[in-house]
Design a protein around this nucleic acid. Structure first.
Lengths: 338, 338
DNA sequence: GTTAGCACTCAACACGCCTAAGTGCCAAGT
DNA sequence: ACTTGGCACTTAGGCGTGTTGAGTGCTAAC
């Protein structure tokens, strides 16, 4: 009952099962992998592994499949990361470098990752905490309605419509814009509210109402930032793995659509040493994802925003993890450059 | 073989089948609907309907189900639009009126429509042809990289990054912005390229390269407009109707993700007298949607942008059509107001 | 600690049978 | 000229039965 061989058996089970979707038995195992022992020995090992809760048998006399715990051990201790192929790397670079817009970059990223992994890919908008104010703009849309635009150093443009006193004139807006911009230009986004508070306090009484409304909008834009949005692609890949989800893929689709769920999930994932974080099956806080795994990692400044994929627990972890890591790396590089 | 009764039979078949998902037979029909005749007579009628290709029998001796052609006739000649319930109407109004941003409005709209119809809802960004230029802005992000922002009268903000000569300074940008804005302020978006062409021609030679690059970006923003984007919600609803899609929902998800496909589809749909346009099953140009129906209608200025839903051919057309129409109507109203 | 052998279990498949629902058609009725 | 009751016919689907094959656990020998 040597420890190393037991792990080797677990690895073989995981790999075969991921490959074939069928419970794998002792005999098939010794045939496909050259472990130097007979099927009976493997059977003993498998009994042990089952006792430890790493594998399980769907019914009395059938092969074993890995449990969540088994996958976890596999990911943590056994799997070695497979590097991407050279063509894949080239494809990543080519695709991402030809993008200009932030939206464009993220859009290409998810599509690429979805195609690379054959899973659903998600990417969170990059964290703007490190960015600062480049520009603000007030545009009078209609009496009492002003479009507030905030442009930050990383190229993100955010807008919001504010309600203001009905009689507001263009020149009032220009004046306020000048005042505000003087205060917050170059200021880090998280610090914007304080600066604005100081500024509005100094305003002449006639401008107070207008100023407060506009400042409020700016605070909203700078605070509750775009980082709370995600982009996704590859939902069609779920359909192919429909057999891996017990009843339907409904709950999974629901989770994906509820951005709040995905955002919490992503933010909870801390990356470990390898730089990629994995949530397997029921490790997952959300019930609808009990049969799903999420692989994600941070990217961009301080790696605060996340990019990753979601798929069935039965997935090729090493390859997928490599793809996620590679894409995140390129993505960070692109964002640094611009 | 009275014509009106045959249509009545078709209606009954469609309604029962939509309700039960099971082929409906002659006997069940006379029991559930009080047609004044016996099952034998119905059988004769059904034989006729089958000859006309309006219904079909899955196997030799089983009830009939409507064909695409049958649904078509049902929609065109038989169905009467069911008005929405008062609570539903109230919900629509409440939800949409509390939105401010254009993005926000569209987002709420699709979610609402998806929930109302239990199908996948899609909405196309409103056509900006009628809008005109409110403002433009150039922001120097990094040496050689300028963020070009175009704000139009309907509150849409669009941005793009342009590559410019490396040595470009802030004051050059300010100068060009002033020149451009003078020319295009208030101009309809489609006319922007001509105005800009005239303007760049007059530039001093030293500004030509920079001017052309910026003008090009502005043209892109004004021309290939946001109308070529769609927002969607309710994909999880597809999972529930998984039984209505023959093999998998894969092709449908693919179509939904390929915005190009959906955009072409929507743009090809002309609304008929009722104000709602319907594509049933194979009427649909895209193969992956052979078992799906699309219900859409225009909204906004000139009803050029589309809002609608996608679901299995076996759906409750009257109710769904009513929901689409109602939502489009409210949506138009909201956009008019802002 | 490993292995061969053996009895045992159980899903999956195939077969045959039966029933219920439904059809088409015909001859009689209005 | 329709409508109707009756009847023979078709077929999917449910149900029990038997068979097969992959796989297990255990024991005794190596």
């Amino acid at each position: 009952m040597s420890e190393p061989r037991r792990l080797e058996v677990l690895r073989a089970i995981v790999e075969d099962y991921v490959h074939s979707r069928e419970p794998v038995g002792s005999k098939a195992l010794v045939e496909r992998h050259r472990l130097g022992v007979s099927s009976a020995t493997i059977r003993n090992d498998m009994a042990l592994l089952e006792e430890e809760g790493l594998i399980t048998a769907p019914h009395t006399s059938s092969g074993r499949i890995p449990t969540d715990k088994g996958y976890r051990l596999f990911v943590d201790r056994i799997a070695e990361v497979k590097p991407l192929s050279a063509p894949e790397k080239r494809a990543i670079r080519a695709l991402l470098e030809s993008a200009d817009d932030l939206d464009d970059v993220l859009d290409r990223t998810v599509r690429l990752l979805a195609q690379l992994t054959n899973q659903v890919a998600v990417v969170q908008y990059p964290h703007l905490g490190a960015a600062s104010v480049r520009h603000i703009e007030f545009v009078l849309l209609a009496p009492g309605r002003v479009l507030v635009v905030l442009i930050s150093t990383n190229g993100a443009v955010q807008q919001r419509v504010a309600s203001v006193p009905a009689g507001t004139q263009e020149d009032e807006l220009a004046d306020l814009r000048h005042r505000f911009l003087g205060k917050v230009s170059g200021v880090r986004l998280p610090s914007v509210p304080q600066e604005l508070a100081a500024c509005t306090a100094e305003l002449p009484p006639a401008r107070q109402a207008l100023g407060k409304s506009l400042a409020h909008s700016l605070e909203q834009l700078s605070g509750a930032n775009r980082e709370d949005r995600i982009v996704m692609a590859g939902t069609a890949n779920l359909a192919r793995s429909t057999l891996d989800f017990p009843l339907t893929i409904g709950p999974v689709l629901e989770a994906l659509e509820e951005q709040v769920v995905m955002l919490r999930l992503l933010s909870e994932m801390e990356q470990d040493a390898l730089g990629v974080s994995v949530r397997i099956g029921r490790e997952n806080p959300y019930g609808g994802l009990a049969e799903a795994s999420v692989i994600a990692t941070g990217y961009g400044p301080d790696a605060l925003a996340k990019v990753g994929i979601l798929g069935p627990t039965r997935m090729d972890y090493p390859t997928t993890m490599a793809a996620v890591r590679a894409v995140a790396r390129y993505l960070s590089r692109i964002l640094d450059e611009s």
